[in-house]
Structures are given as C-alpha cells and as structure tokens.
Write a protein that binds this DNA or RNA. Structure first.
Length: 429
RNA sequence: GCCGGCGUAGCUUAGUCAGGUGGAGCACCCGGCUGUUAACCGGGCGGUCACCGGUUCAAAUCCGGUCGCCGGCGCCA
C-alpha cells in the first residue's frame, strides 16, 4: 500500500484502509488508548492507538514516542464526532521511524526563544501556512510575467558598483579588489532590455542599514522588472495589474492558508485596477491636514506612509517625488522639480511595497546628481553606455517579496515572511 | 545610531518597590485512568537568579559597569 497524504486520507470513507507518514504533532494518553495527532505537509489527523489492536511492542513505542517523533502509521478511517475534524484513523500498525528527544518548543514561547529555535519553529502551523503562501505568491508572479511577455533573467549578486543612493552596502574582498553584495539588479536589467525588451528577475538583495523596524530585513528577495518603450504611467499600469493578478489568484487558490492567517479572500478579490494615484505634492497636503509637519523635499517615514494608507482598501501610488529625495537614475519631470517615479503603498498601514520610475536618459543630468552624492563617476561608465547606444524610453520597478507576503498574510512582522530572517542583531540559525 | 523595556529551572513566570533558607505552571521521568481535544489525578527530577565589580553581618533584590535580546524612531525596499 502506498503512503497517502493526510489531506487525502481525510477524504476517505468510513472503513477505508490508509497508510500515512509524518510527525507526531500532539499526543494524549488515557489508560489503554493513545491519541496521537500526526502532521505532514498537507495537514493533520488524529490517530487512535488501542492496546490489543497493535502489537505489544508497537503500543509501547507509541507510548514512548515524544512530540515530533517521525512515524509511519496504517489503519482504518472512522467517522467520529469526538475527533478533531470529525474523522480519525484507528491504527493497525504503528512504526516509529525516529524517536524525537524532548522538543524544546512547548506551549509558552517568547519571540527571542522562537527566533533562536527558528529551525524547529518552522514546523509550526503558522509558518507552514506562510511558507506555502509565499511559494504560491511566487508562482502567481511568474505566471503573470510569463503571460505578459517578460523574460526572466538572472543578474549577478556580486557587484563592483556601490549601488544606488546613500544606502549602506556589505563589502568583501574579491581576490584583492573591493566588491559588494547587490542591493538592486536594476542597472543590469536595464542592460538586458536592449535585447529582450521586457525582463524581470528575482534575486537576494542586501542592505547593511541598521534598521530596527518590523518591515526591514537585512537580506530579502527582490523582484525587479524593467520595460523598454514604457513611461511612468504605463509602468504603474503594469504594477497594479501584476499585484491584482497575484491577489486574485491567492484568493482563488490559497483560501485555507490566508484564512488561517486572518486574511479574508474577499479583501484580496477587491484589489483590482485602477489604484488611486496621487502626487507627492498632494500627499503633503493630506499629511498636513492630518497634523504632520512636513516640508517639501522630505521623504516619507513610516508614520507618514501609514497615515496615507490607513483607511485605504487598495494600494495607492504616490508619484513625482522631489528630485533631491530620489535616486540619480530617475527621469526628471517636465516641471524640473520632481522625478517620474511612483511608490506603491499597501493598504491598512502596511506601507511601501514597490518603488518604481521611468529612467533618466540624459547622461549629464545623471552625472550632475551623482556628483552631488559624492559618487565615483567612473563606476557608472558602463551604465552610461546604455544611453549612448540606441537609448529608448524605459521604466522599471522593484518589489520586496517579503513585504508583499507581510501585507497579504496580514503578518505583524516581516521576519515571518522568510524562513531564516536576517535581522540587525541576528543571523542565526 | 538614539530612546524605552526585559534578562530567575529546558520553556513561561512569581518574588525586586520594602535585603533575611528562590515558589509555581508547562515539558520530561514514575504510577493511575478505554474517548482524549493545551486531557486529567498523584509523586519525582530540575536553579552560576545574564555577567563583572561594589555596599552590607547578609544581595535575585540596593549601587556602578558590561553583554544579550525585544519594541519604537532615524535610515531604507
């Protein structure tokens, strides 16, 4: 007999024989009966081991086996209202594959202890559901790019460019030369649009900033796209279509995962184009009406973003930030003061999930802004070549995958959107 | 980097204000129970009170310092 996934075993009828394998999730004993709840990747089922119905040795093994012991179990499915879920497995054969030692995680846990034991806490229901959801979100993202004529490309994560803005980078010795861990693949993607026109990539990105917030990871999965012949408006159209596609597909296919996590499928179904678009200037007015003291030129902090989206049900775009608040590669707008950029802020106060812009084509304008930042112009020569040989209008955007998961899964901290979070004070396990 | 909080058994904690032999629940072990749902009942095992120094007859407790973690801000996706 083949092993059955627990999900399927639970669908079998009264009296049917099944064989499952997994880990002991909970165990209760009462005299001659042992109730062992078994979990595998698909779900959990209560098994009943009764003295006399299995060999003496098997009964004793079942008695001894602690939580998280791995087991193979055969038995008969019975409907019983006393069982969680109304169905259980009456065991005829109980084999312990490996006896677990005392499992350190018990009913009361602190954040610190769970992070120290992340490798074990990944077995919890919550993280299991989040990891399944993340896998599906990535699948839907890939689905959308494929349907919209994008090529998936694989840029390098090791770079000589100390990258954008003033963001801090991790540096290391590359056979005697200084090199850095990438913060963005954007410039490499820009190079590739001249052959592939529409490209996207999924890479790890690294930020050495000492950020201590619930929405920052030191290492995160960065999804970036770059599109030839596309301006900032069309760029926003693409972003809202992609996000809406992912939300709709999650609502359709991941209902058990999201509802376990407290996110209603209807809330995600309601996410569809168009998303509200407001200019930075208008956002300033809204913030001032809400009592913030904020000057033209200031970038938004967490409280500002939260205030802009706390009452929204869909994500919003904030466009046309002041030139001095954004990176050198963003195209300067006709007004001369702002850039053709757009930040997508997730609703319910979750804040920025995407940053995008139309790219500057004037080499002079970029050099001027890079000099203001004190950057070494020589490092950008190859990038300027992209403007020298048949430049075209183009735009792109970058999305923090964990931020998307954080919002969709309604998490209270981004660390739970990734299996082994790298945080300011933690890179173990 | 700044501000705040916390650190007592494997885990979660009481005790710290007001110095005087560190208690409990969970986990684990032993025993009991033929329908448990975080099972229950009885017993047992388990402590460098984060670390270093000081005050005191006496420090988990008071004082000084160090380290670690958490939360918020700043910075950023």
């Amino acid at each position: 007999m083949e092993f059955e996934k627990i999900e399927n075993a639970l669908k079998k009828g009264e009296g049917e024989e099944v064989r499952i394998r997994g880990w002991i999730y909970r165990k209760r004993r009462t005299g001659k009966l042992i109730f062992a709840v078994i979990r595998d990747s698909s779900g959990i089922i209560q098994t009943v081991v009764e003295k006399g119905k299995v060999s003496e040795e098997e009964f004793n093994d079942a008695k001894k086996a602690l939580i998280e012991s791995s087991v193979e179990v055969e038995g008969i499915i019975h409907e019983d209202e006393r069982a969680p879920g109304g169905r259980e497995l009456h065991v005829t054969k109980f084999r312990v594959v490996s006896f677990a030692e005392d499992f350190p995680i018990t009913e009361h846990q602190s954040v610190e202890f769970l992070l120290d034991n992340r490798h074990l806490w990944l077995r919890s229901r919550k993280l299991t559901e989040v990891m399944k959801l993340k896998s599906e979100i990535l699948r839907f993202i890939r689905e959308w790019f494929h349907e919209n004529d994008f090529y998936e490309v694989t840029p390098s994560v090791i770079t000589m460019n100390a990258a954008e803005g003033g963001a801090t980078v991790f540096s290391f010795d590359y056979f005697g030369q200084p090199a850095y861990l990438s913060q963005t693949a954007q410039m490499y993607l820009e190079a590739m649009i001249f052959s592939l026109e529409r490209v996207w990539s999924l890479t790890p990105s690294f930020r050495a900033e000492k950020s201590r917030t619930r929405r920052h990871l030191i290492e995160y999965w960065h999804l970036e796209a770059e599109e030839a012949w596309v301006d900032n408006k069309k760029n926003m159209d693409l972003q809202e279509e992609m996000i809406s596609h992912v939300c709709r597909r999650v609502a359709e296919e991941c209902k058990p995962q999201i509802e376990f996590l407290g996110r209603k499928a209807e809330e995600l179904k309601a996410i569809e184009p168009p998303f509200p678009r407001i200019k930075y200037e208008r956002a300033l007015e809204i913030l001032r009406e809400k009592g913030f003291e904020i000057e033209w030129g200031d970038d938004f902090g967490v409280p500002h973003e939260r205030a802009l989206v706390e009452e929204e049900e869909k994500p919003i775009f904030v466009t046309n930030f002041p030139v001095e608040a954004k990176a050198f590669y963003m195209k300067i707008a006709p007004d001369g003061k702002t850039v053709e950029c757009a930040d997508m802020l997730a609703p319910e106060g979750y804040g920025e999930i995407i940053g995008g812009s139309e790219r500057e084509e004037s080499i002079e304008s970029m050099i001027e802004r890079l000099k203001k930042d004190g950057a070494n112009i020589e490092n950008y020569e190859w990038y300027f070549d992209l403007r020298r040989y048949g430049s075209v209008p183009h735009s792109g955007f970058g999305l923090g995958v964990e931020r998307l998961v954080y919002w969709i899964a309604k998490l209270d901290h981004i660390r739970d959107a990734t299996p082994f979070p790298r945080l300011l004070r933690r890179a173990y396990p």
